[in-house]
Write a protein that binds this DNA or RNA. Structure first.
Length: 506
RNA sequence: GGCGACGUAGCCAAGUGGUAAGGCGGAGCUCUGCAAAAGCUCUAUUCCCCAGUUCGAAUCUGGGCGUCGCCUCCA
C-alpha cells in the first residue's frame, strides 16, 4: 500500500507521488488575522500538520508553506475603530494564533510568508496579467477579467452563467463584469497603501496566494490545501490568475478540509458564533482536541459539542495510560521475531488507514485496540515494541503519549509538587474553586483545621496533609469527612500507591 | 433558485458489494479502608424511508424525506 489522497481538482482518490524527486511542496492557505482564530482554523491546520508529519514519516522531504494574509479590509476597519494602525490589529490576532498553534502541537510551517512582504511579486504578477489582457485598470483599482479565462469554475464545479445569476457589482466598483474580482485596490484617504504603476493601493484577496505560490514553490507544485470554504471563490480565483500566466495545473493535488460547525451551524467571522480558539484551549486539553478532530474524517463536516471534548479527554488518558503501562511492564523472556510479529497487525492496520486518504479515524481506532491488548502484548514480551509503536503512532498524529497538559492539576505527596501546584491555583485556578468555596471550606472544616489555615488555596494542601495523617492513623471516618468536604468545594481527591492527587472540578 | 455534501447504536464516528471498527456514555465484574484510576466483560439481527439490480447491498441504481454547506468575508 502507498498513500492515496482525494484530489478536489479531479474529484477522485489518486495515488500520491511527488512531482519532482523526493520533495513534496505544499502550500496551505493560512490565516487572515483580522479576527480571533477559532476551532475551525485549528481543525484545518491540525489536519495539514498531520499530513505533513506523515509525509516526513514516509521519507519525503517536505517544503511546507503556510501564508498569512496580513492585509485586508476587516483589519483596516478594526484599526480605525480602535484608533490603532491596522498592522497592530493583525499582529495581535496573529500572535495569539501562533500561541494557540503551539499549544495544539501544530509544527511551524517551513515558511510562513506574509502578503505584505510580497508586494513586489504581486505587482509583477498583476503587470503580467494586464499585459496579457487578463486584467484591466479602472478608476477604483485593477481587476481580473473572468471572461478572459474560459476554464473559470472548473475547480468548484460551476459555470459562469450560474454564477452570474446572483452576482452584482457593488456600489463604487467599476469592474466590467460582475464576476471580475480585484487584484489591486486603490487606496482611499487614510487607508494603507503601497505604490504601484497604476496608483497607490493594496492587493485584493486572492492575488497574494498566487504570487507567493509562484515565488516560493513555482508551478506546478504538489499540494494546495485549505478549508472547504476556500474552493470558491478563493481557490477558483487563484487558479484563474496563475493559470492565465503559466501552464495548468497550478497545483497537482488540491485538498480541502471539511468545515467545523458549532451548534449545527458553521463558524464564521460574519456570524461571530464562535469562542476564540485561545479561550477554548484554556478550558480543554489541546491534545484532546486533536484526538477529537482526528476521530472524524478530515473531509467531513463536523459538528462540535462540548460533551465530545470531555469524552476525547477521557480517551486520551486511556491511550496515555496504556503507554505508561507498556513502558513500565516488566521484561519477560521473548524473542525479537515474535515481538515484531505481535505488533505487525496493528502497524499494518494503522498505516493502511493513513494511506487511505488520511483516514485518521480508522488509524486512531487501531491505537485503542492496541491499548486494549496492551496487557497480553506485555505478557507476550512485546511491551517495548508496543510502547515504541504507540509512541511513533501518537507522535505522527501530533499527540504526545506522555505529556499531561494544563488541565490536569494534580499533585503527589512530594512537597515540591504541592508547592508548585498551590502556586498554579493561586495564579490562575482560584476561580475554579467557586465564589464561596473557601467560605464553605471554613464552615465544613473549622473544627478540624485551624481557621487561619483555610485562608488561601494552600488550604487544600493543608487538608490533604491532614487526611494523609488521618489515614496513617487509621482514622478513616475523619479521612472520609475530609474527602467529602473537599468534594463539596469542588476538589476531587485520588489515592494511589504514589500518594494523593487532587483535581479541581470544572 | 442553482450547485454540492451528508443521513450508521443514547451521543460522536469508521466502513462504499461479502455479511456492522473505534471513542464517549451506560451496565456488570476485578482491584481498593472509602472514592477514584486502571483492567476485563457486555452494550446495532442492523445502517433515514420505499422500490430495484445482485447469489449477496449500510455499500450500486431510481424515487422520497431530512440535515448541512457553497453561490457574499470565511479554515
Amino acid at each position: 500500500m502507498s498513500l492515496r489522497l482525494y484530489n478536489s481538482r479531479t474529484r477522485t482518490i489518486e495515488p500520491f507521488a511527488p512531482l519532482e524527486g523526493n520533495t513534496v511542496r505544499v502550500y496551505v492557505c493560512g490565516l487572515t488575522p483580522s479576527a480571533q482564530a477559532h476551532l475551525g482554523h485549528a481543525r484545518s491546520f491540525m489536519f495539514f500538520d498531520v499530513l505533513r508529519r506523515y509525509f516526513v514519516h514516509l521519507g519525503y522531504r517536505v517544503d511546507f508553506v503556510r501564508n498569512v494574509t496580513d492585509i485586508d479590509d476587516r483589519s483596516i476597519a478594526e484599526g480605525r475603530e480602535r484608533d490603532v494602525p491596522w498592522h497592530v490589529v493583525v499582529d495581535e490576532y496573529f500572535a495569539t494564533f501562533k500561541r494557540s498553534m503551539d499549544r495544539l502541537h501544530v509544527i511551524d510551517p517551513d515558511r510562513e510568508p506574509r502578503a505584505t512582504q510580497y508586494i513586489a511579486e504581486i505587482l509583477a504578477m498583476i503587470e503580467a496579467l494586464i499585459e496579457k489582457e487578463h486584467a484591466y485598470v479602472v478608476g477604483d483599482g485593477v481587476y481580473f477579467s473572468v471572461p478572459s479565462f474560459p476554464r473559470y469554475g472548473a475547480l468548484s464545479g460551476r459555470n459562469t452563467d450560474e454564477l452570474l445569476i446572483g452576482a452584482r457589482i457593488a456600489p463604487g466598483e467599476e469592474k466590467r463584469d460582475p464576476l471580475d474580482f480585484a487584484l489591486w485596490k486603490f487606496a482611499k484617504p487614510g487607508e494603507p497603501a503601497w505604490p504601484s504603476p497604476w496608483g497607490d493601493g493594496r492587493p485584493g484577496w486572492h492575488i497574494e496566494c498566487s504570487a507567493m505560490c509562484h515565488a516560493l514553490l513555482g508551478e506546478p507544485f504538489d499540494i494546495h490545501g485549505g478549508g472547504y470554504d476556500l474552493i470558491f471563490p478563493h481557490h477558483e480565483n487563484e487558479i484563474a490568475q496563475t493559470e492565465s500566466l503559466v501552464p495548468p495545473p497550478m497545483a497537482n493535488v488540491w485538498m480541502h478540509g471539511g468545515l467545523l460547525q458549532f451548534d449545527g451551524k458553521k463558524m464564521s467571522k460574519s456570524l461571530g458564533n464562535f469562542e476564540p480558539l485561545y479561550d477554548v484551549l484554556d478550558r480543554n486539553d489541546p491534545q484532546a482536541i486533536r484526538l477529537l478532530f482526528l476521530q472524524t474524517g478530515y473531509r467531513k463536516p463536523m459538528n462540535l459539542m462540548e460533551e465530545s471534548l470531555a469524552g476525547a479527554t477521557t480517551g486520551l488518558r486511556r491511550l496515555q495510560s496504556a503507554y505508561d503501562a507498556l513502558r513500565k511492564a516488566p521484561t519477560v523472556p521473548h524473542d525479537e521475531g515474535a515481538e515484531r510479529a505481535a505488533l505487525e497487525p496493528f502497524e499494518m492496520r494503522f498505516f493502511a488507514a493513513l494511506d487511505d486518504d488520511m483516514n485518521t479515524s480508522g488509524a486512531v481506532s487501531v491505537l485503542f485496540d492496541l491499548a486494549a491488548e496492551s496487557e497480553s502484548l506485555a505478557a507476550a514480551g512485546a511491551a517495548s515494541h508496543a510502547a515504541a509503536f504507540l509512541h511513533q503512532a501518537m507522535s505522527l498524529l501530533g499527540i504526545s503519549p506522555a505529556e499531561r497538559t494544563v488541565h490536569e492539576r494534580s499533585l503527589t505527596q512530594d512537597t515540591r509538587t504541592i508547592g508548585s501546584l498551590a502556586y498554579t491555583i493561586r495564579r490562575s485556578g482560584a476561580e475554579h474553586l467557586g465564589g464561596d468555596a473557601l467560605e464553605r471550606l471554613r464552615r465544613l472544616l473549622g473544627e478540624i483545621i485551624p481557621p487561619h489555615a483555610i485562608a488561601a488555596p494552600d488550604a487544600i494542601d493543608a487538608i490533604v496533609e491532614a487526611r494523609i495523617k488521618a489515614k496513617s492513623e487509621k482514622d478513616f471516618a475523619l479521612a472520609d469527612r475530609l474527602r467529602h468536604a473537599l468534594s463539596e468545594a469542588g476538589v476531587t481527591l485520588s489515592d494511589s500507591k504514589d500518594g494523593t492527587t487532587w483535581t479541581v472540578d470544572d
